[in-house]
Amino acid sequence: MNSTGAEADAARGAFALDSTSPGAAPHGFDAFRRGWRTQLGDGWPMPTFSPATTGDFRVRSRVAKVRDVGVLDLYGASAIRTAGDRHNHRDHVRMYVVRRGAWTVGGPTDRGQQTVSAGQFLIRRFERPSSFEAPPHTTAKILTLLSGALTPLLGDESITGPADSPEVRLLVAHTNMVHATIADLGPAGVRAAHSALIELAKAVAVGRFDDVEPRLAPALAQAAKDLADTHLADPELSAAMLARELNVSVRTLQRAFAATGDSVSAYIRQRRLEEARLALTAPSDRLSVSELAAHWHFADSSHFIRAFKKQYGQTPTEYARSTGRGPAVPDR
């Protein structure tokens, strides 16, 4: 392997685990520990989990290391608890974004406990070993930053806020892209991913981000796509609505999409057509062509049919018939 490849391999690492399926739990913790040690290395000591946790380790997780930043996505079907990270004494900052359940961190020796509830985030500096625990069915994203890049912004304070803030949306979108692409990143890609992680973590800490920073354009576009996916049936969905929710100008949002070779309106239309295509082959409650056009907010049936044929090479009725099903009312 050349030095460039070795540099990338040393600066990144990733593994995924699902021990929630029947029969996987008894070996779940061993697999997690093996993945952690081989992919993250000695620079990232694994937390010291309680015996109860290691004996019933039913989790679905994905872990990535990008230089000195770690990203963990975790769903715990079982409870998770540690007795303190006895081996981790490096000054570091952690960010917790909790979607479901709760995550409790710290203890009497570390400025007291703090609990992050569902729908909230917490950024906190840790100067000494700390413990954490979460009840069953907790879903969380955890970032660990060993570089101290956030320390000047935090001091001895913790920062909390809503998990649906624009800054958190961008950070989550970027971490998801990291998980999806990390295996293919070369040294330049690792550096870019790391730089964006640091900038977005800072943005969450201060409650704003630099919307003209080109390194953040992919994260902004992805955050807008993620948000659009949850509002496809909303008649108000538009570039203006997405820009408002993400606290940027429409021009900034359109520029971010253009940097990825896409446009806001094209993405919304493509996703609505995908949903309409799936609806055409639904096993029950199939809609007519005109009903589908109205439901997905096309101007009329003719516009919907033309857009569908351009996307899939068949009209809606032709597509439905080719799959052995058909809408209640044919194209016209």
Rank of each mutant, 00 (worst) to 15 (best):
P283C: 06
V264R: 05
G161K: 05
T175L: 03
L278G: 10
A52W: 01
I305Q: 12
E133I: 02
R125D: 03
S117V: 03
L17I: 13
A118E: 07
A25W: 00
L17T: 10
K225R: 15
A134I: 06
G326L: 01
D85L: 05
D30S: 14
H231C: 07
T138G: 10
A83V: 14
L280G: 08
A77G: 14
G41W: 07
L171K: 03
P51F: 10
A276G: 07
P166N: 05
T109I: 02
T115D: 05
T139R: 13
V168N: 03
P47T: 12
H297M: 01
A217N: 11
L232E: 08
D285S: 13
S131P: 00
G28E: 11
A77Q: 15
S21F: 02
T4C: 04
F209T: 05
V97T: 14
G28Y: 03
R286A: 11
A8G: 07
Y319A: 12
A188N: 09
G189F: 04
E291K: 09
L185N: 04
E236M: 03
R208F: 11
A196S: 15
T317M: 04
H179N: 04
D229A: 15
L273F: 03
A149T: 09
S322A: 15
T82V: 06
E245R: 13
A258F: 00
Y96G: 05
P129V: 05
A188I: 03
V71G: 02
E133Q: 13
L278A: 15
L246H: 05
H231D: 10
E213N: 15
V71I: 15
A320K: 04
A203L: 08
D110G: 00
A134Q: 14
V212R: 14
P166I: 04
G189H: 05
N247R: 14
R128A: 14
L170C: 07
P283A: 12
D9H: 10
L145W: 03
G119V: 10
R244E: 15
A276S: 12
A279S: 14
A219F: 05
P218K: 04
L146D: 13
G107D: 13
E7P: 00
P47L: 09
Y75D: 15
T139Q: 14
R67N: 12
P22N: 08
K141H: 05
L232D: 09
N176G: 12
R332P: 06
S265Q: 12
E167C: 07
G148Y: 11
F57T: 13
A243M: 11
P22Q: 10
W296A: 04
R128W: 02
A134N: 08
A233Y: 06
A77Y: 03
T230W: 00
V63C: 10
S50Y: 04
S284V: 09
I305C: 04
A83Y: 03
A201S: 15
V69C: 13
T175P: 00
R34F: 02
A8H: 08
A228W: 01
H89P: 00
Y267W: 09
R169W: 00
V93W: 01
R100K: 14
P214K: 07
M46A: 13
A77T: 06
A217P: 00
F121S: 11
W36Q: 11
I159K: 14
G107C: 03
L197R: 04
G261P: 08
P108Y: 02
V289W: 00
D331K: 01
P108E: 11
T260G: 06
A14F: 05
V71S: 11
I123V: 15
L253T: 07
E274H: 06
I305M: 07
D234F: 01
E167Q: 13
D210E: 15
D73K: 02
F15N: 08
